[in-house]
Write a protein that binds this DNA or RNA. Structure first.
Lengths: 251, 251
DNA sequence: AATGCTCTTCGGCAATGTCGAACGGCGTGC
DNA sequence: GCACGCCGTTCGACATTGCCGAAGAGCATT
């Protein structure tokens, strides 16, 4: 692993938290200020960060937006889901989220709002700890995925590795993951993995307020059907996908 | 400038073009495959690129989406424009685009669709050569901005540096930039710079089909008013902003 | 069955990034 | 009004580190 590139990515990661002074970046990453300066200047030249003229502080730059947009626009999973999410939302009355795994988090790559017409925040691009949401569990169950410290987000968040593994085992058997106020109070969800020809491409899930939980069996069936349909479009031959590695493959 | 970080950014840039094999990335950047491999592996570890399991090819990864989303969500220009773009679109009947400069391109950071209700592609994140669009001219006129090879996109694209500079001079005097089928056939536009307390924060513009060109003076007035209003909200004291450097400051 | 193409690994050279200290500018508190 | 401390930035020397060329392994194709 190239040291300085790794550091550059870490710098972008901490800047994703908030704008910072050079010294703050350096101290947070245990680097010398001058070392940080060299890397930041390089990122600056590529538009990945910008510097505020008055304070001297650094922020993420428009270069990140360009890359992120290209990622979204070329993601086949997103394109395939687009043809199914609308009807799934209509049939279930829920918002439909599609996500992929990023290290130990889930990044939402598509979002179909609830069909009730109420104004909702677009959620594409938001990041949720994988162990605390249905999408994440559906993904972790079938992909290696690093699972480091299990941070608690609400009182319901699973923070015990063994308890999580038990849930993942259940997910592997049923193909469906659940979440009850584990990431956000008042929000519950259901998710299913989506496979492509060789891998787990992502996961698709339903989001519903706690008052609407548990969801009826018809919603679960609709979700499963959609996950299977999208997987087939992506070239998958089987669904649910086999666990990538290990996993007690017993019945 | 740190060499390997620079190379990493270049790799991301070429991957933004399309998915590629390792060797293709290497040859396009005149690097040894093993050198490229080391950098790509580091980017892989941070989720900035992903590798397709079957072909071995590399693509951009979800990490780019995370960064790009954070950039958008924390961009004050975007937040301020949101309060004005809707009315500007309503008053002019045009789509409203807001963009910032990225090296020699413009990145669209906000997009208010035409108010006619016709389904339109969301344009946030798209990239347009600065010399070929109104937004870009409004920005180049007031920011240093690198202006390398002036690629022709249509028959109308300005490819002569002197001609472009003459236009920029005009933009500096009037505060308004125009574009007539220079980036896309059938599309014209008008744009004005937006300033903040210390700098040029971006530009806001109207997009209209060639059949609707030229726009009436009322549209121009509405655009100018909006640019001035947003600039004031961002802390600017004067509008249009003074050219950052050089520029024949004659009357 | 062999060949071409991938991605990947390994080892040596020296180029290169890293660090510490010093500089200039700025706001702050005295 | 002055001095202090903090900020980003620059510079130079050391040695760490990334760079390259060649060899290895897997795979689809011929």
């Amino acid at each position: 692993m190239i040291h300085s590139v790794d550091r550059a990515m870490r710098i972008l990661a901490v800047l994703a938290g908030r704008r910072m002074s050079l010294g703050e970046i350096a101290s947070r990453l245990d680097l010398a200020p001058s070392t940080t300066h060299g890397i930041v200047r390089t990122l600056l030249a590529h538009g990945m960060v910008v510097q505020e003229r008055d304070s001297g502080h650094y922020r993420l730059g428009p270069g990140t937006l360009r890359l992120g947009t290209v990622y979204l626009d070329t993601l086949e999973l997103r394109a395939r889901v687009a043809g199914w999410a609308g009807e799934l939302a209509r049939r279930t009355g829920c918002a439909v989220r599609t996500g992929v795994l990023l290290l130990s988090d889930v990044v939402v790559v598509a979002h179909e709002p609830r069909p009730d017409g109420v104004r909702q925040m677009p959620e594409v691009g938001i990041v949720i700890p994988a162990h605390a949401c249905a999408l994440g569990k559906a993904l972790l169950a079938h992909e290696p995925g690093t699972a480091p410290t299990l941070h608690a987000m609400t009182g319901e968040t699973i923070t015990d590795a063994a308890a999580l593994e038990a849930e993942l085992h259940h997910v592997r058997r049923t193909g469906i993951a659940t979440e009850v106020e584990e990431a956000v109070i008042g929000e519950c969800g259901l998710a299913a993995p989506v496979a492509d020809a060789t891998d787990v491409a992502g996961a698709i899930g339903l989001v519903v307020a706690s008052s609407g939980w548990p969801l009826p069996g018809t919603a679960l069936d609709a979700l499963r059907d959609t996950a299977r349909a999208v997987s087939r479009e992506l070239g998958a031959t089987a669904w649910p996908p086999a666990a990538a590695i290990s996993g007690p493959a017993s019945a």
